[in-house]
Design a protein around this nucleic acid. Structure first.
Ligand code: ZN
Ligand code: ZN
Ligand code: ZN
Ligand code: ZN
Lengths: 146, 146
DNA sequence: CTCCGAATGAGAATGATTATCATTATCAAA
DNA sequence: TTTGATAATGATAATCATTCTCATTCGGAG
C-alpha cells in the first residue's frame, strides 16, 4: 500500500503498461508536489515537455490511481488533488487559505473493518477548518470563504 | 452540530430565509433517505411537486449546506450524496455494490485539532472497500468494478 | 389588495473529467 | 533496419454534475 516514484515502474510493467517518458515525468512531479491538482501537474509538466497534453495528464492519473500508485482527494474543492500513496494519513484542510496538513492517521480501520465484516482498500479522511494562521481575528490569507 | 428536519425551519429564519414548501419537502426527503444524491432527491420531490426544478434542488442543497443543516459526501462516486448533519460518523463505502454503512466516528478530532492549532468545522471520513456481501468469491451485486 | 424582494423553472453556461480519433512512438519479429 | 501490430499521445468534442441567468411567480408587510 506504499509506493515510490521508482516502484511505479514495477506497477506499470506488472500490468503490461509501458514506462513512457510522460509517465515518468508525471509521477515524478506528483512525488515532489503533494496535493497538486491536474492543471498544476500539466503546467509543471510543460516545463520539461511543452507538447504534453492535458488528456495525457488525466489518463495517466487515472491509470496510476487504478494501480494504487497515487490517490486522489477532493480537499474541499470542486476538483481532485493527487499524491503518491504512502503512509495512511488524514488531511487537515484550511477552509480559508487552502493549506493542507498531513497528519498520521489515528484510525484503527483494521478493527473497524473486522467489526463490520468489511474489507477496507482505501481511506479518505479529512478535517476541514481553519489553520493556525487563519484563526478568527487574523488577516486573510488567500481563498477566503464568502 | 446536530439538525433535524424541524430545526431547519429555525436555521432558515435565523438568516432571514423563507421556509417554503419546496424547502420543507426537500429537507424531509433528505431526512428520510440518508446518502441520497441530487437526482434522487429531485425524482422523489417530483412525486409531491411535479413542477419542482432541478435547480431548486441544487440551490436548496447549497443553502442547507451553508446553514450546516445537511452535509455532502462524495462516497467514491463522481457526484455528491447528502444527509442531515447528525452524530459525527464515518462511512464504509462498498466499492462493489455501493452500500454505505454509517459507523460511529472513532476519531478524536478535538485532540488532533488542539495538537495542530487547527479549528475543525467539518469532518469527512470514509473507508472504501468491500462489504460482507461483496467479499471476493461472492456473486456480483450491482455496480461491479471494471 | 398592492408592492417588492425572495424564490422558482427553464435552460444556458461552466468547469472538471472522459471519450474519440487520427497520428506518432515503441518494440519485437523478420 | 524495416515492418507490422499495438500502445500512447494530442487535439478536440462530448459528458456530467453543478452553477448561473433571467423572466416569471410567490409571499408577506403594509
Ligand atoms: Zn489557513
Ligand atoms: Zn496528504
Ligand atoms: Zn457490497
Ligand atoms: Zn452517513
Amino acid at each position: 500500500m506504499t509506493q515510490s516514484p521508482a516502484e511505479m515502474r514495477v506497477a506499470l510493467m506488472a500490468v503490461g503498461k509501458r514506462v513512457t517518458p510522460d509517465r515518468e515525468l508525471l509521477i515524478d512531479i506528483i512525488g515532489r508536489n503533494p496535493h497538486i491538482d491536474a492543471l498544476g501537474i500539466h503546467r509543471l509538466a510543460q516545463d520539461s515537455r511543452p507538447r504534453i497534453g492535458l488528456a495525457t495528464v488525466y489518463r495517466t492519473l487515472r491509470l496510476l490511481e487504478e494501480l494504487a500508485v497515487v490517490e486522489a482527494d477532493r480537499l474541499g474543492e470542486g476538483h481532485s488533488h493527487y499524491e503518491i500513496r504512502g503512509r495512511d494519513h488524514l488531511h487537515l484542510v484550511c477552509a480559508n487559505c487552502g493549506e493542507v496538513l498531513d497528519v498520521p492517521s489515528p484510525i484503527d480501520w483494521k478493527g473497524i473493518a473486522r467489526e463490520h465484516a468489511f474489507v477496507v482498500t482505501q481511506s479518505r479522511l479529512e478535517l476541514v477548518g481553519l489553520c493556525a494562521a487563519c484563526r478568527p481575528g487574523v488577516a486573510d490569507h488567500s481563498k477566503s470563504i464568502t
